[in-house]
Structures are given as structure tokens and as C-alpha cells.
Amino acid sequence: MVNLDPHPSNRDEQPSEEDFASAVEYLDTATTTVAERVGCGYDSAYYYLNKLEEDGVVRSEKIGNSLVWHAD
């Protein structure tokens, strides 16, 4: 389950792909917000979200300069 602690340093373990998918399912939001909620850096969030998009779990939509992620 997603750690919604706003302080990522409180995480004891690395986030899983499931954490990223859950964050998108509940948040339907930008890469930066997913990274904050999951407790990782932007690059890691972007990598895993792209991987999940390739697997058909999430989809992205470019809005302005941001990618917004949606659960499929």
C-alpha cells in the first residue's frame, strides 16, 4: 500500500511498482506528486510510471509542461 507520509525519509523500504500504481489510482496526478507520495525522487517515479504505462496499468496525458498519470 502507498505510504502517504509526507516525509519520505520515514520509509523503511524501497517503493514497489504496486506503490506507484496505487498512487496513480488514488491521486490521478503529476509525476512530482506521485514521487512525493511514494517517497522517491522524480526520476524513479518517472521510470516506474513509464514502465507501468508500457504494461497497460496506467496512462499519461501531457498537460502544459506536466505529465498527468491516470489509472487504466
Rank of each mutant, 00 (worst) to 15 (best):
W69N: 07
W69P: 03
A45M: 02
N3R: 03
P8S: 12
E53N: 10
M1I: 10
P6E: 14
Y42P: 10
K51Y: 14
A35C: 09
A30R: 05
K51W: 11
E17C: 13
I63L: 11
A21C: 15
Y47T: 14
G56A: 11
K51C: 06
V68R: 02
K51L: 14
E25N: 13
E18C: 06
A45H: 06
D19R: 04
N65C: 06
Y47R: 15
T31C: 03
S60Y: 03
R37F: 00
T29D: 03
A23T: 04
L49Q: 11
N3K: 02
M1W: 14
L27R: 06
Q14S: 15
E13P: 00
L67T: 01
A23G: 12
D28G: 13
G41W: 04
V2D: 02
F20Y: 13
P15K: 03
S60L: 01
R59C: 00
G39W: 02
T29N: 08
L27S: 08
A21S: 14
V57M: 13
D72I: 12
R11E: 08
A30L: 07
E54P: 02
N50C: 11
Y47Q: 12
Y47H: 14
F20R: 03
G56W: 03
N50S: 14
G64C: 11
H7Y: 13
C40N: 06
D55K: 15
P8L: 00
S9L: 12
A23Y: 02
G39C: 05
S66T: 10
E61M: 09
N10H: 11
V58D: 10
E13C: 12
P15Y: 02
